[in-house]
């Protein structure tokens, strides 16, 4: 199977149309007033903000800029403001610094050196704010996780991935960038390196150890049941790299399927209770 970059090319007009319809339909069914999202100034959340504005009108989209002193970057603030202006979004800025400090002081086991765990607290704290606004204002939480990061488990369990709907979760990062360009997200945001902003100078590609252009093609091959050796040969990379990506993808399934219990009875939540999804 061909694994050149063009396999990731989609009909962006159709993708745009489908995702806008998806967002609008869900919001209408839920009887909600609109959507709320964490607007970081990065490409994923900016794409979600733009799609939501195209689907619902900017006045029905609330972008929450959730900053705290350790990771606040003026460039991100400017990009979030640019999105608000470009797509006429509603916005609110929330400084989570004091809430995080209060949490840290209240947890006896808190350790300032435990960077990953403390970073996860930041992601979960953002989730708490987003859901608080959603519940107060009758809004749907629109998540901005993409397929590359979701497959790699590159997110915080119960944190940034928590949402009512995740419209771009079936698009790889490089596809999100293409869609973002198509729908008019400013180029400086489209091109900006992705960061979860859990600690200063944290960048996704550095942490994952691979460029998204390459990662996405490996994931594309795995998605289509290609063997690691086939993918490695096609992409002219080491088989061990593909195998490492595959291991990471498979080992993160616990983060993507969150309800697991022991099967004891007739029908079981998270296993064989198969019900239609009810919107809120």
């Amino acid at each position: 199977m061909n694994l050149s970059a063009d396999v990731l090319d989609l009909d962006w007009a159709e993708v745009d149309q489908r995702l806008c319809r998806f967002i609008k339909d869900y919001v209408n069914r839920a009887g909600a007033e609109g959507v709320v999202l964490g607007l970081s100034g990065g490409v994923d959340s900016s794409t979600i903000a733009a799609l939501s504005a195209r689907a619902l009108g900017g006045r029905n989209v609330l972008g929450l800029t959730l900053f705290e002193k350790e990771t606040r970057r003026s460039e991100d603030v400017l990009h979030a403001e640019l999105m608000v202006k470009t797509f006429e979004l509603k916005s609110e800025a929330v400084d989570t610094t004091h809430t995080l400090e209060a949490f840290n002081h209240s947890a006896p086991v808190f350790d300032s050196a435990d960077r990953l765990n403390n970073g996860n607290v930041k992601a979960r704290m953002r989730m708490i704010y987003v859901y608080y606004y959603a519940n107060r204002l009758r809004l749907i939480v629109c998540g901005s996780s993409d397929k590359s990061e979701t497959m790699m488990g590159y997110f915080t369990k119960w944190g940034d991935v928590a949402a009512d709907i995740s419209p771009i979760m079936d698009l790889y990062k490089t596809q999100v960038r293409s869609l973002a360009r198509y729908i008019g997200v400013p180029e400086e945001i489209v091109e900006k390196p992705s960061s979860p902003a859990l600690w200063p100078n944290q960048f996704a590609e550095e942490e994952l150890g691979i460029r998204f252009e390459q990662l996405d093609l490996i994931l594309f091959g795995l998605e289509r049941f290609m063997k690691p050796e086939e993918i490695a040969a096609r992409l002219r990379v080491k088989k061990s790299l593909v195998e490492a990506v595959k291991r990471r993808w498979l080992s993160a399934e616990h983060k993507r399927r969150m309800l697991l219990t022991a099967k004891l009875e007739y029908r079981t939540v998270g296993a064989d209770f198969r019900l239609q999804r009810s919107p809120l």
Binding site: R18, R21, F22, D25, Y26, Q276, R277
Partner: peptide, 8 residues
Amino acid sequence: AGIEDGLQ
């Protein structure tokens, strides 16, 4: 036509 559980 329409959308059911994300299926368009």
